[in-house]
Write a protein that binds this DNA or RNA. Structure first.
Ligand code: FES
Ligand code: FES
Lengths: 132, 132
DNA sequence: TATAATGATATAATATAAGTATCATTTGTC
DNA sequence: GACAAATGATACTTATATTATATCATTATA
């Protein structure tokens, strides 16, 4: 039932670190030293953030990652989408056959309401809002 | 990220069936035939509902389960608690050391808000509200 | 050219969820 | 009382998702 998995947790930490740093470009090695996170896991996750245009990447000596977006434009909702796909708290539990009035099913409705609420909250939380 | 796992899904179906039935006491065999659910799995889950006082159980020939509570008193929130423990969408992701101002952390606050919203919705959905 | 970085991708380990199997106990019917 | 049909208790297996590792290729800089 977790909304935030380790990928997302680590991603937030790394993004905050990069956002706070004086330097533009931060290497995975530095992040690992500072944040004590498992290196191969962090690498993969940052590569994903690069593919998804949240980070810029610089190969080679002195390379690393920098933010591709302002911290104000990096939404928690987007991070969740990147690592877990669309926010879906639940499918219809009755697989469209058993519920008496599917269109008006209170269960579906409630879950959907929770889902919408969650999405709106997550979409309004940014890395910037976590900076201080 | 699922709010409703198979335990809960099946439990709702079984409770609805029992609530709708003319008969008081319904056996697992009947439920399995009618609802096409895996029998040992369903059995275990109904036994749990018995232990948690949602169902009454009758052993022996002609036995089975009956509702121990009115459908209006069986809340989805309670079913979730039974099968997944307290509704917690997330722990503090920073394990109380990295966040600059833990007491005022917007992330914690948002997650908590979502959690509270979810709880209030789930607590207000009953088996009775799903009956028709 | 050596080194320090990322890109891509395959694999392994662990945790959680889903499902099965089995034996003991109870209870109604013949 | 014997048998059958049910639940009680509990151990086990399988499947799936999450978390983590390993490796080789590529790039850029000193
Ligand atoms: S949960 Fe699917 S119709 Fe109610
Ligand atoms: S998430 Fe724990 S203090 Fe912000």
């Amino acid at each position: 039932m977790k909304l935030i998995t380790r990928n997302i947790d680590y991603a937030v930490r790394a993004l905050l670190y990069i956002a706070r740093s004086k330097k533009e470009v931060i290497s995975v090695s530095e992040l690992v030293e500072e944040l004590n996170l498992p290196k191969p896991f962090l690498r993969r996750l940052l590569q994903t953030l690069h593919k998804r245009k949240v980070l810029k990447a610089y190969k080679g000596y002195g390379g690393g990652f920098s933010l591709a977006l302002s911290p104000r434009k990096i939404y928690l909702g987007e991070l969740i989408r990147i690592f877990k796909g669309n926010i879906k708290l639940n499918e219809c539990i009755f697989k469209r056959k058993l519920c008496p009035n599917r269109n008006n099913c209170p269960l579906r409705r409630k879950i959907k309401e929770i889902e919408n609420y969650a999405i709106s909250k997550l979409e309004s939380t940014t890395i910037s809002s976590l900076l201080d």
